[in-house]
Nucleic acid binder design. Structure first.
Ligand SMILES: [Zn+2]
Ligand SMILES: [Zn+2]
Ligand SMILES: [Zn+2]
Ligand SMILES: [Zn+2]
Lengths: 144, 144
DNA sequence: TATGAAGTTGATATTCATTATCATGATGAA
DNA sequence: TTCATCATGATAATGAATATCAACTTCATA
C-alpha cells in the first residue's frame, strides 16, 4: 500500500462520516506516514510542529483516533506504560520484538504462531478479533 | 505452589531488602492470593477494605509493586488502557484469551507457541526476557 | 521491656497522559 | 456568498499512578 492509497483511505473515511478535510489532518497524516516508525503522540507532535507550528496537541490525539478508526493506525500499549502509534497496513500484520534497554522495535511475523493463535481462539469458542504479541528482550548491540 | 509458599517468598523478599512486616502488607497479600483473579488496583482496594478498612490506596500500589518485584505478581497492561494484577506462579506461565464484551479472562498455554517465540528471539539475536500474548475476541456466551 | 533507628502508613499533593469544553475559525454544499 | 456544520487551539478537567510528609510501627539491641 502506497502513501497515496493511505491518504485515499483517510479521505474516504472522512467522507463516509461527514467529516471535513483540514490542513492539520493532512499534515499529521503525512508526517505519520513518512516517519515509518512507532511513535508516541508527543514524538509525532514534535515532528508535525516543525512544518506546521500552529498545530495543537489535542489535534494530534484527535487525528490519531481517526486514523485508528479507519484502520491506518495501530495503538500499542506497552508494558512500560507508554503508548505508541504505528502505521498499519491491513495486508501486513506483524508483531514486535522490543529491546528493553534501547527501545529498538523489530517487526516480526511467524505464520505458524498466527495459525496456532487461531486454534486457541477456536478451542475456547472465542470469535477472534485481534491479538497482541510483544516479545521483550535485550538486542544484540545492547548485550555486549 | 501453595499460599503458604507464596507468603514465605514474600517474607524472604522483605528480609533480604531489610523491609518490615506489617498488617497491611499481609492483609493485602492474603486477599490478593484468595481472589485468584485478574484484579485492578481499585478492585483489590475494595476487597481489602472489607476486612481492613483503614488501608489506604497508596499502600495497595506500594504492596503490588513489592509483589511484582519478588515474582508473585504480574502486571497486565491491557489494550483498553486498564492495568490488572494477577498472581503469578513462576512455574506456570500462561497467556490470556480476553472477551472484549464481558471482560472474561481465560488462561491459556500453547507450548508450541512458546517454543516458536524463543526461536524468534533467537533468530534476531535477542536475549529473551518475557513476552505478552493477549488474544482478544468474543466469548461463546457473548456471541449468541 | 524499654529504646531508638529505620521503615511504613494514610492522607494529600503532584505528576503525567489523555479527554472534554468552548469560543473562534475553517470547510464545502447550495 | 451564505451558512450550517465541523475543526481547531487553548485550557480545564479527568483518572491512574507516584511522591511527600508527619505520625506511627517494627524490631534489633540494651
Ligand atoms: Zn501476530
Ligand atoms: Zn510495528
Ligand atoms: Zn506465553
Ligand atoms: Zn492470568
Amino acid at each position: 500500500m502506497t502513501n497515496r492509497d493511505a491518504i485515499e483511505i483517510f479521505h474516504n473515511y472522512l467522507a463516509t462520516k461527514n467529516l471535513k478535510h483540514s490542513e492539520q489532518r493532512m499534515s499529521i497524516l503525512q508526517d505519520f506516514l513518512d516517519s515509518g516508525k512507532h511513535l508516541t503522540a508527543h514524538e509525532l507532535f514534535v515532528l508535525v510542529q516543525k512544518k506546521t507550528p500552529s498545530v495543537g496537541f489535542a489535534t494530534i490525539y484527535r487525528t490519531l483516533k481517526l486514523l485508528c478508526e479507519c484502520g491506518l493506525c495501530r495503538e500499542l500499549k506497552l508494558d512500560d506504560g507508554t503508548t505508541r502509534y504505528e502505521y498499519q497496513d491491513e495486508t501486513q500484520h506483524h508483531d514486535h520484538l522490543i529491546c528493553t534497554k534501547c527501545g529498538k522495535f523489530v517487526e516480526v511475523l511467524d505464520p505458524e504462531i498466527e495459525r496456532l493463535q487461531d486454534k486457541l481462539f477456536d478451542a475456547y469458542g472465542f470469535l477472534p478479533q485481534r491479538h497482541r504479541l510483544d516479545l521483550y528482550g535485550i538486542c544484540k548491540s545492547c548485550n555486549k
